[in-house]
Structures are given as structure tokens and as C-alpha cells.
Write a protein that binds this DNA or RNA. Structure first.
Lengths: 154, 154
DNA sequence: GGCTATAGTTCTAAAATGGAACTGTCAAAC
DNA sequence: GTTTGACAGTTCCATTTTAGAACTATAGCC
């Protein structure tokens, strides 16, 4: 597999995997959603090597998920902020958190609770159909080849 | 980072990442949701090395995401089927597909279209609040430390 | 016996990662 | 005006993972 062209495969999952499909990137994104923005902060909270952190941040900037913004002119210092494209990764992160809550929990209960500011309640994220609003299940979905692919699949 | 104990971290995202947080595993799961079940079928559609495929399938079985079921007694042959725990990964996969459709598309259009059997329409997956049903956005969510973690975060 | 199909395992070279030390810039403290 | 410390990286080398290909094993079919 040529990972460097995975983002050009005729498959939206592959393209997403090309960007966020590794362990460190997902953990870095978690920190971003918890409002972490600076190199040292990522490094100390994740215990990631500085080299890899530098690589991953560059990659996320390159793909337009983070924006590198100066917060100090002299010395030059930057912080990493989620773009709209990055913020749109939220459902992926939340889906993973919810699966972990459901299937990987221990006797101590959930590590984090999420409160919806709009309605004020503690909630779980639920994936629904954009058309009818019903909860989605794999077995109720039929897959067709779209215009971006010739042959039929699945 | 000790990746072998990532599934015991007091963070549901980490625990999920421990299981599905690598490129091959996510691609293998895509194939599972497209009804692929056999070793040779995974291998030829993904072009993954047989060694890694073997490793990843074992890991998915160990975590209870796939079940290894004999479909032939002599010679012993097995196929890999998603358990309920595995089927519950569907929102993660769909969230990734949707993000790819939205942000990584090219001029040819979507590779795949999804039809909801329940309502009959082509749809997008949308993540909503389990309590009020509103669409979720990162900025409308407040995070609290839960019982599974002592100190407050974010 | 020879051929094919399936599901792996083994081997070696190449690539990625971990861990630690090093670089460079500037502000504030002494 | 020299030292200390914070920050944002880069460099180096040992270890671990992965890629790619060949090999093993079982059994059905001709």
C-alpha cells in the first residue's frame, strides 16, 4: 500500500484514514477539542516525542485541519487552532468516545461526561439519517457506487 | 507511550484508538461492513501483506470485534464476522466516510452513495444529541470529569 | 501423482518510532 | 551584562513495525 496517495483513493473512508488514521493524530485531535493549542502543551499532556509531534502537526496543517497562528512576534511562537474542516471531525471523535464508553468501560464509570449547552443535559452522541431522522444501523443501509467510482461495491 | 496499555487509559477515546486506531484496522473494518469475510478476500481487495492481515484479524478477534467462525471442517477454514460490538463501530466508520465526502472529495463526485432502507432515501449520517435531537457541534458541548477520572479536564 | 484453493507462517530489508540531547530566540531575574 | 528559563522545534541513533516475497500445510479434484 502506498500510504502517500491514500488520500486520492476512490473511497471517502480511505481519504479520511489518510489524514486522521493513526494513533497519535487522533490523540492530538482529542487535545485540540479540549482546547490545547501549543506545542509544549501537546507534548507534555501526550508524552509524544517532540519529533513525532512536529511531524503530525505539520501534516494536520498541510491538510487544512489546523491553522498555525502566531501568538507572539518576538520570539516567533505559534499555536495550532482547529479550522472549520478540523471542527467537522467532531462527529468522528465523538463516535469513538461513545464506542469506548459503551464497550471499553471499566467498573469506575465514564472518564468524561458531555453536556449539551443547547438543552443543558448530559447526553450521548447518536448517529441518525439526515432524511428521516431515525437512528442508523449498518444493516439498514444499502450501498451504491456513486459517480466517483465506476464498478459497484458491496 | 506504551501502546499495549492504551486500552486501560482513563479516556474512552484512547481506549477506542487502542482497538481501531490504525490505518489497516480501519480499512479492514470497511471491508467487513461491505460484507467481506474471508482471509483471501481481505488480502486481495486491500493488498495488505498476509502477515499484517493475520495480525490485525487476531487483534480484532481478541477485542471481540470479529468472531472467527468455521465454514469448512476439513480443511479447517474460518471466516470473520462482525459481532454486535463490531457492528457498533458503524457510526465511527460512517462519520469518517461523511467527513471524507465533505472535505476530501474530487471533481468526480462521491465514491459511494448510502441509501436508508427504512425511509428509502439517499442520506448523510448526522450526529445528534441523544436528549434533544439537535445536531451536535463541538462548541456547544461542555466536558466534565466523570466518575472514571479524578481531576477535571478541558 | 499433480494442480488448485485457502489460510496462514517465516524471512529479510526498508521505514517509522522512541528517547534523549541539542539549537535558537527572547524575556525576566540577578 | 550574564544567567536562567520558557518555548518551539531539529538532530541523532537504537529499537520496533511494516512491506514484500517466498514457504508451509491441508484437502478436493482430475
Amino acid at each position: 500500500m502506498k500510504w502517500d496517495t491514500l488520500d486520492e483513493e476512490p473511497c471517502s473512508l480511505s481519504r479520511t484514514v489518510a489524514v486522521v488514521g493513526d494513533r497519535w493524530t487522533l490523540l492530538i485531535l482529542r487535545e485540540c477539542f479540549l482546547r490545547v493549542r501549543r506545542f509544549e502543551a501537546f507534548q507534555s499532556s501526550l508524552q509524544i516525542t517532540r519529533h513525532l509531534l512536529s511531524e503530525r502537526l505539520k501534516k494536520l496543517v498541510r491538510f487544512g485541519i489546523l491553522r498555525r497562528i502566531p501568538y507572539s512576534e518576538a520570539p516567533k511562537r505559534y499555536e495550532y487552532i482547529l479550522t472549520q474542516k478540523g471542527l467537522d471531525l467532531y462527529p468522528i471523535i465523538m463516535a469513538m468516545v461513545h464506542w469506548g464508553d459503551t464497550h471499553m468501560g471499566d467498573e469506575r464509570g465514564r472518564p468524561l461526561l458531555h453536556q449539551h449547552k443547547t438543552c443543558g443535559k448530559l447526553f450521548d452522541p447518536v448517529m441518525v439519517c439526515s432524511e428521516c431522522g431515525e437512528v442508523l444501523h449498518a444493516k439498514q443501509v444499502h450501498v451504491h457506487a456513486g459517480p466517483g467510482r465506476e464498478e459497484a461495491v458491496g
